Simulated scan of single mutants.
Amino acid sequence: MKTMPSLGMGTFRLEGEVAYNAVKMALETGYRHIDTAQIYGNEAEVGQAIADSGLARDEFFLTTKVWLDNLGTEVFKSSVEESLRKLQVEAVDLLLIHWPDVSGKVGMDSYLQQLLEVQRQGLTRLIGVSNFTNAQLDKAVEILGADAILTNQVEVHPYLQNRRVIDHCKAKGIQVTGFMPLAVGKVMQDEVLQAIAATHNVTVAEVVLAWQLQQNLVTIPSSTKRVNLETNLKSVKLVLSDDEMAKIALLDKGERIANPEFSPEWD
């Protein structure tokens, strides 16, 4: 698949048989964009689910991410090759640097050159970054050029709308992929979102995903239930009014969920 579908299936926190079943159901339901990562520990299950789906390689878009421990020159390429073996593909569609190395152990110039090199060698079709601040993205653009970087994958949901990062990426012509779009289920209890969902006779999840899609973001919700996978997929057809978009904009609290100790200094 040449372009990245705007709605994908995220696999963070899905392990073993749960991961396999969720990805298999997602593909059966109609998802054609699957997002995983080395650190998720589920690449083998994701790969098996894809293999068992019977889909031709050009029918789906597959993303994985290189973990911090694998950014060094001596392990970068071999870690990607291991990911490909687990995923049962000759190349992924998109390979991301999962987190910028703020420890100073491996310089950005070094690991981004490694990323570019595995792309040149055909192990990935496209490359990008994840959890990069605006300053880090600027540095990445200096190293690789804006055209080389497809996306910056960052946390985006109604309580962390990340507008400074989104605006900066748009100015650079870089796609934003929003992860944790449903704030780990917290959105389901939100009265503002519930009211909007009731107006359209849809789920709260559909409203939140439509809100992201209307901002021209790529979004990768995760679910293990077929009914939720099916309703989430319907969000691509839901159109929210300007007033509804404005109401959701007011929910922003700067509430970050993914904030490990190795995080950069966020915008």
Rank of each mutant, 00 (worst) to 15 (best):
S83A: 00
R13P: 01
K105G: 08
S235H: 06
L62I: 01
E81Q: 14
I97S: 04
R164E: 15
C169R: 04
K237S: 14
N152Y: 04
L27T: 01
M25Q: 15
L160S: 09
R163M: 11
V75G: 10
K247S: 09
M108C: 09
S130E: 04
E142C: 08
L251V: 10
N70L: 11
N228R: 14
T11K: 05
S83C: 00
K65P: 04
R163A: 11
G122K: 04
A246M: 09
G10V: 00
Q136R: 05
N70D: 15
E155K: 01
S241D: 06
Q136F: 09
Q88M: 09
I97P: 07
Y40P: 01
E45T: 03
S222D: 05
L213S: 02
V92E: 03
A195F: 08
G54A: 02
L137T: 14
D109K: 13
S241M: 09
M1L: 14
R163V: 10
T133I: 08
D52K: 03
A210S: 12
E74T: 11
G104V: 00
Y40Q: 01
S6R: 15
A140R: 06
Y111E: 00
K86V: 04
L209Y: 03
S223A: 14
V154L: 09
L123Q: 04
D58C: 13
L27M: 02
K170L: 11
S130H: 02
M188Y: 13
A195H: 12
D52S: 03
R32K: 14
L160C: 08
D109S: 11
M245L: 09
L144R: 03
V207Q: 00
L160F: 13
I248T: 08
V165L: 15
L94M: 11
Q113V: 08
E244R: 01
Y111S: 00
P264R: 00
V218W: 10
Q175D: 04
L115E: 11
Q175I: 08
V66Q: 05
H98P: 06
A198P: 05
E230G: 10
V154N: 08
D52V: 01
E17W: 02
V129F: 02
A258C: 15
G8N: 05
V106F: 03
L250P: 02
V207A: 00
V187F: 01
I196L: 00
L94Q: 09
A258T: 14
T73L: 08
Q121Y: 06
